[in-house]
C-alpha cells in the first residue's frame, strides 16, 4: 500500500461519525495500528483480489469503487465520501477485496487494522455484535442503492 503521510492515531468518539457511542476501551484497543492515510487523486486505496485487512473511515475527499466490466473500460459504480465507511470484505470469507477503490480527489481516511478488530471481537463478542449492527445498515443501504441503480432511475 503506497500512501503518504501515514501517521499513528488515537481514536475517540469524535474521530468519525461511525465511532460515536462506542466503548472507549474498544476505541483504545482499535487505535493499535490505526493509521491516518492520505491518498492522492487516482491513487488506489486497494485493488480487487488483494487481502482485505483494513477498515476505512473516510474523513475527507472521495473514493470510487471500481469494477471490471465486459467490453468496456473499468467502471466506477459507487463513490464514498466524508463521514462514510468503506470495506467489509475482512468480515467475509475469503477476505479479499471484491472491488478496487481509487481516490477521485485528495483523500484522508483512517484505516483500522482488522486483525486488531477480530482479536478484540473474539474476546468481547458483545462489542463485535454492536459493531456489526452498526455496519449492517451501511451494507443494507449500499445494497438498496445498487438496486435503485438497477431500476434505471436516471433514465
Amino acid at each position: 500500500m503506497t500512501s503518504l503521510g501515514d501517521a499513528p492515531i488515537v481514536l475517540t468518539e469524535g474521530t468519525h461519525p461511525f465511532l460515536e457511542r462506542f466503548d472507549p476501551k474498544f476505541l483504545a484497543a482499535a487505535s493499535a495500528n490505526a493509521r491516518e492515510m492520505r491518498f492522492e487523486t487516482d491513487e488506489y486505496v486497494f485493488r480487487e483480489g488483494e487481502r482485505a485487512q483494513r477498515f476505512f473511515l473516510i474523513l475527507e475527499g472521495k473514493v470510487g469503487l471500481e469494477i471490471e466490466a465486459a467490453d468496456r473500460p473499468r467502471l466506477t459504480v459507487q463513490t464514498i465520501g466524508p463521514g462514510e465507511v468503506m470495506g467489509w470484505a475482512w468480515l467475509v470469507h475469503p477476505y479479499h477485496w471484491p472491488v478496487a477503490a481509487r481516490a477521485l480527489k485528495p483523500t484522508r481516511a483512517i484505516a483500522l487494522d482488522t486483525f486488531v478488530l477480530h482479536r478484540y471481537f473474539k474476546l468481547h463478542p458483545d462489542v463485535g455484535y454492536r459493531f456489526v449492527l452498526r455496519l449492517m445498515p451501511v451494507i443494507a443501504k449500499r445494497l438498496d442503492d445498487t438496486r435503485v441503480q438497477l431500476a434505471d432511475i436516471h433514465a
Binding site: 487523486t41 472521495k62 470510487g64 469503487l65 471500481e66 468496456r72 473500460p73 473499468r74 467502471l75 466506477t76 459504480v77 459507487q78 463513490t79 465520501g81 481509487r102 477521485l104 480527489k105 442503492d145 435503485v148 441503480q149 434505471d152 432511475i153 436516471h154
Partner: peptide, 16 residues
Amino acid sequence: VDSADRNWYGDVGVVT
C-alpha cells in the same frame, strides 16, 4: 451518475 469510466471524478450513485 449510475456508473462512469475512469475519466469521471464526480459522484457515482443515485440522486436519493
